[in-house]
Every structure is written in C-alpha cells, then in structure tokens.
Design a protein around this nucleic acid. Structure first.
Length: 477
RNA sequence: CGGGGCAUAGCGCAGUUUGGCAGCGCGCCUGGUUUGGGUCCAGGAGGUCGGCGGUUCAAAUCCGCCUGCCCCGACCA
C-alpha cells in the first residue's frame, strides 16, 4: 500500500503533494504558482461555497461582483494597506498594445475598489448597513506556493460591510467569526480556535483581525478564515461618509472577511490518512459509492441489477455513485475510492443478494472494523445515519488529536517543546518584542489570542512581566 | 529573493561520472483469464531526453544562458 502514497509519518509534506494530485483535486499549471482545480476538487469547493453562501444569505448578506482590475493609486490611499500588499502585487502596465497611463493592479483583495464604490452609494444613515459579499479570484505574488495552501491566484469569498456605528461593525465582525466557526465545525468537521490576531499578524489596514485557527495532522497551524474590523480606516481613505439622524456628517465603519480555497487544503490535512483523503460527508462530492461484486457471468447480471436499483433508491437521499467499471477487481476499487476520500462505501455481491443485505464500509474506520451489514429494506434510513456518524467521528478524531497536541505551558522551555509538536497556550504581556523574540527562537507565532480566555492575570512566558491574556502559539503554514 | 536538489513515455525512475542503438516498472490499448481488500498471461502503442545556444564526426551525457518544480529560510489567506 505504501507504494501508492508516501505515509504521513515519513514525509507529511510529500504526502500532501501526492494526495492532492492522486485524488484528482488539482494539478500544476504551466504558470508558476498557479493551479488547475480539477472537477473533483472543484466540486468540493462548490460544496464549501454553497455551505458558506447559505449562511451569508441567512444573515442578511447579498452577493455582488466587483472588477478584477484596480487603479494602482487606490491601493496607495491607505498607508498600511499599500505597505502590506505592495510586495505581492501583479501589475498590468500595458493594454491593447499600448502603455497604460495608470498601471492597474490585479486585485489582491478588494477593500479599495469597494471602498471607492461605497463612497458613491452611501449618503444617508438610511443606506446603511451595506452587507455585500463577492465570490471571486484574487492574485498575490507569493514567493513560495503550494497547491491550495498558497497559490498565486486563488478563489475565495470576500465580504465587505459598512455600518453607521462602531458597535454595529464590531458586532458584524464577530457574527462572521461565529459563522466561520460554525461552518468549520459542522460542515468541514474541523475543530477551530477563534480568536484575535496580534498587532503584527493582523490584516494590513485593519484595526483588529479575527481568525479561526486549525491544527493540521503534522501539528502545524492553518489560518482558515479571517474577519477584520476595519474601523474607519478605509472610510477615511475613500471618503465614505453619511448624514446621520441628527444631520451630522459621519464616516462609516467597515468590516471585511474571507474564506478561500485554502479550506480545501485544511480538509485534506485535517482528516486525510495513509490511504488518502477522508472527506467530511457534508461536503464530499460523492458521499456514497456502490461497488458491485460478482464471480460468474450469471451473478454479474443479478448483482448489477440490484446495484442499479439500490442506486436509484439512494439517489434522492444522498450524493451516490455506482462504480460499474469493468476490468477492475473489487479490491482495486476499494482502494481507489479510499484514495478519493468517499465517506461511505457499499459493497454488494451475491451473498448480499441472497440475504437481502448490503455491506457498508466507513472510510474513517479502516478495515473490517469499519464494516457493517445493513438490511437492504432500510438503506434509505441507515445510510444517511451512517454518514452522520462519519461526520461526527472525524470531527471527534480531529478534536482529540488537537487536544493531545496542545499544552498549557508555564515555562519557556515547555513552550519550545510544545510548538515542536503542536500548540502551546501561554500568558503573553502584549509586547511585540516578546512575540518577535519567540518567533525568532522557535519559529512559532501567535496564532491568535483565543476568545476562550481563563481570565485573571499571569506572567508573560517570555519576559515574565504581568500579562492579561493567554496567547495560542504554533508553527504555521 | 538567498541556500540546496531536480527536470528522460501519462506516473515513478535508471542511463549523465568516462559523449557512440533511449531503457525499466506501473499505467494505457487488444485478446483471454480473474473479481468479497490493489488477479494473471500474451501481444501492442507511446519519447524533438524542460527550452535556447555552444563544443564535437557524434550530445540525454560536456559548457553557457533561460524556464519550471520540490525542500529549507525570509513573505503570506
């Protein structure tokens, strides 16, 4: 089996690169740092998109689309923003064979162009709040890329909202953080730690950034979604003003938030094993695969007929696929679907036909232990129930893994040991100098200041001064 | 962008040191055999050796430049 996929324990990084390609999620493109998302990977992304979009709509947001090109000067209007993004901009200098008067940047994110438009659209407190999301591609000229985790071009959603008051904008920022957490936990089956970014890790141009941080199977952290409170920074840069009830001219308060195709990488590295992908049932392109089994010609007809009838019965209930491929042994097909991470496999052969049963094999429990015999009469109920068990099971497994690799540390030595294998929670005084020193010495950064705080006060893990917050430390992707 | 490695059939690799017929395994196609955890046999197709230039009677092999990928670092959703 090891011939087919490098084991995670041998080289996690290599395992990741192999499985992304072997499971047909994506392929390299001829352009550096760009990827082709293949149909299987794209369907997974579509399911992620649908699950998030449903939540956005339910909380009053609407979708729109803003253009890919942004005048260079727009980026320069917000000092921190331009400083943060300038090094990774793709710039268009020519169009239609002529040099452009003003270069256009390919959006790395859309705060600026959306800010410009909001300034035109917002006049009165009656125009607020504006709650717009867009599904788009963005480009960041990263130095080092990896499929799904960091590509030059990536797909994401970016929400951009404008509010009359600071409180409302803060509330929106946190509402989205909760929404992302809910999606990660319930649909992607990824336990995440929501919290605030430190000053040095926050979004360029934000007052505060919030994040959901996940632990991958190699103990490293992956920032899986962010929600930014932008204060009035972009309102002032783009002159987004409105008249309030008292006829006073005010700047709006804005937020922005995003989840990207990186989420696919998060799913791969949270649940995958040495057999391949393990996809959460709620998001899996195919939730159930039926593998028919026969020995003789006679059996073949009977089994296929039963398999097709089973397929038709399940189709209204789950995303099911019937593997009718000729010339592949059942064992070969089992491995093939395991590689692709299909959560549940139904094996149907002559023995099952005789007894009115079908064998269900869970992807999250390898071998015989994950198999169960279902009565054919009750598959419409039993199969969705099993999928729910898999969904809950992989979440539990991921949570157990994270907890087993997270340590409350009280000494700097203990922190060093902890971040070599996972996360460390430790008191931090808030001084960027301590944060920078820890990063320098351990490669670990503050992933976030978790929402879940013990309260009270302690001693900074680095300098020993009084500290009021516990920080989550870890090495990150 | 700095350091290291790599680029030969769809995939994984050998051949490069010492220049001389482009090979192996898997996959793919055809026929048969097999099918409850990666069947077996026979036959077959497939390569301007990453690109450009140079040296040479002769270059996958030597030299120069370029491009891309992987790993480590700085940057980052």
């Amino acid at each position: 089996m090891a011939d087919f996929l490098t084991p995670q324990s041998e080289d996690f990084s290599r395992w990741y690169n192999e499985i992304v390609q072997k499971a047909d999620l994506a392929d390299y493109s001829p352009v550096r740092g760009c990827m082709v998302i293949k149909p299987y990977g794209y369907t997974l992304w579509e399911n992620i998109r649908e699950a998030l979009d449903r939540r956005f709509k339910a909380t009053g947001h609407v979708n729109a689309y803003f253009p890919l090109f942004i005048p260079m000067s727009f980026l320069q209007k917000e000092a921190e923003h331009v400083e943060g993004f300038a090094p990774e901009l793709a710039v268009v200098t020519h169009g239609g064979g002529e040099k452009l008067e003003e270069p256009l940047v390919v959006r790395p994110t859309s705060e600026t162009i959306i800010g410009y438009m909001y300034a035109k659209w917002i006049q009165s407190y009656r125009d607020l709040p504006v709650l717009i999301n867009q599904w788009a591609n963005v480009v960041r000229w990263e130095m080092r890329t990896r499929l799904f985790l960091r590509t030059t071009e990536f797909l994401w959603q970016e929400g951009h909202t404008a509010h009359a008051t600071r409180e409302e904008a803060l509330e929106e920022t946190m509402r989205i953080l909760d929404l992302y957490t809910d999606f990660a936990v319930n649909d992607a089956a990824i336990p995440v730690i929501p919290g605030r970014k430190s000053e040095s890790e926050k979004f360029a141009g934000a007052v505060n950034s919030y994040t959901i941080e996940a632990m991958m199977k190699d103990g490293k952290a992956l920032q899986s979604g962010t929600s930014h409170f932008l204060g009035q920074n972009f309102a002032k840069a783009f002159d987004i003003k409105f008249l309030d009830e008292n006829n006073q001219l005010q700047y709006v308060w804005t937020t922005s938030w995003g989840v990207s195709t990186r989420m696919v990488g998060a799913i791969v590295m949270t649940h995958g094993d040495d057999q391949g992908l393990v996809l959460p049932p709620r998001l899996a392109p195919t939730q159930v695969v039926i593998v028919p089994i026969w020995r003789k010609k006679k059996e073949r007809e009977a089994v296929l007929e039963a398999a097709r009838s089973l397929y038709e019965r399940l189709r209204p209930v789950v995303r099911v696929h019937l593997d009718e491929r000729e010339g592949f042994s059942p064992g070969w097909k089992f491995h093939d679907w395991e590689m692709r991470g299909v959560p549940l496999r139904l094996e149907l052969g002559p023995r099952d036909l005789a007894s009115g049963t079908v064998v269900a094999a869970r992807r999250d429990i390898p071998g015989r232990e994950g198999k169960r015999v279902l009565q054919m009469a009750e598959v419409e109920q039993a199969v969705p129930a099993l999928l729910e068990e898999v969904q809950a099971g992989i979440y539990r497994k991921a949570l157990d893994f994270r907890e087993a690799h997270t340590w409350e540390v009280e000494s700097y030595e203990a922190l060093k040991e902890a971040v070599a294998q996972g996360f460390a929670r430790a008191w931090w005084c808030g001084d960027p100098a301590c944060e920078a020193a820890i990063k320098e010495e351990t490669k670990a950064t503050i992933r976030c200041l978790p929402q879940d705080q013990p309260g009270g006060k302690g001693r900074c893990i680095y300098c020993g001064k009084e500290a009021h917050e516990v920080a989550l430390f870890g090495r990150a992707y």
